[in-house]
Design a protein around this nucleic acid. Structure first.
Lengths: 152, 152
DNA sequence: CGGTATCCCTGAAGATACTG
DNA sequence: CAGTATCTTCAGGGATACCG
């Protein structure tokens, strides 16, 4: 979070995304949620985060529509935290971060967790392409800006 | 940044990535760099960030290998900040953030900047798939954990 | 213009104790 | 176990002045 001008009015979708999930903990919680964690205690153990902070972050993520709560079966009933569709759609972001980290932040022989297809066990990769299927790199693209309303 | 246990030893590549570029400003600077900005003043104007903070962030990004400096032509010669290959490889992350933001953080008719292929003008999309080309969603995947060294 | 050096302030995060 | 309630700390960030 940090006090900083909100980017929610920015016309750049990346900036708005960062405004919503660009803080330290949110994406780590989302990562754990993708990893199958649902319970308060699981998140806390995994992240080593203070309980009050975790509660705050979880509430924020719920407020933003990225997680939703559901009462558990047992008794006493607790809440469990599940990714919404909006949250699950952060999957490509996580994969992109993972792919980049694998490439640049690990020694070649260093142990790392891996993301695999459940059925085939194959590695997961990510491709940036045009609607009609051509692979593109950053230099093949251009940002079409929204014209400034008032003046040049 | 914020004081928090470093994740640089985490075995999850996503976590390490977040450790390196997961703070507020870094990805916004990188976004601007993809957008073609290279000069200190350009970043400052675009981001509305304090100069000392910008200088700090730029230095950190250079230290981490995401940006590199190069003296400019004119006189007096200044530095300009360019993405390294490591930095350019953050492109999928930016595209993923953008795609998610477009979908969930804009009203249908709301103005937004767009990312287009330079030559064809087509929209850019992102696909998560297996090595052999099958599209996958988050529920089709599984994390293969690194076994804990010491004990269960 | 492209920074560096200071000072100050805020609020995010930690620690801890408490409750159902 | 799943939180809530306080208190405190501290470093990121804003503002400003200054320098080459």
């Amino acid at each position: 979070m940090v006090k900083r001008k909100s980017l929610i009015a920015d016309t750049c979708p990346s900036a708005r995304s960062l405004d919503v999930i660009g803080d330290w903990w949110s994406l780590l919680i989302v990562r754990d949620a993708f990893d199958g964690l649902t319970r308060f205690g699981e998140f806390q153990k995994s992240l080593g985060i203070a309980k009050n902070i975790l509660a705050l972050r979880l509430r924020t993520l719920v407020d933003r529509g990225i997680l939703e709560t559901r009462p558990t079966e047992g008794t006493p009933s607790r809440e469990e935290y599940l990714l919404t569709e909006m949250g699950r759609d952060l999957f490509p972001v996580m994969v992109a971060l993972r792919q980049w980290g694998e490439r640049y932040l690990f020694e070649p022989d260093e142990k790392r967790s891996r993301l695999l297809a459940r059925d085939s066990g194959r590695r997961i990769i990510l491709e940036v392409k045009t609607e009609d299927g051509k692979l593109v790199g950053s230099s093949d693209t251009v940002i079409e800006k929204v014209p400034d309303d008032a003046n040049p």
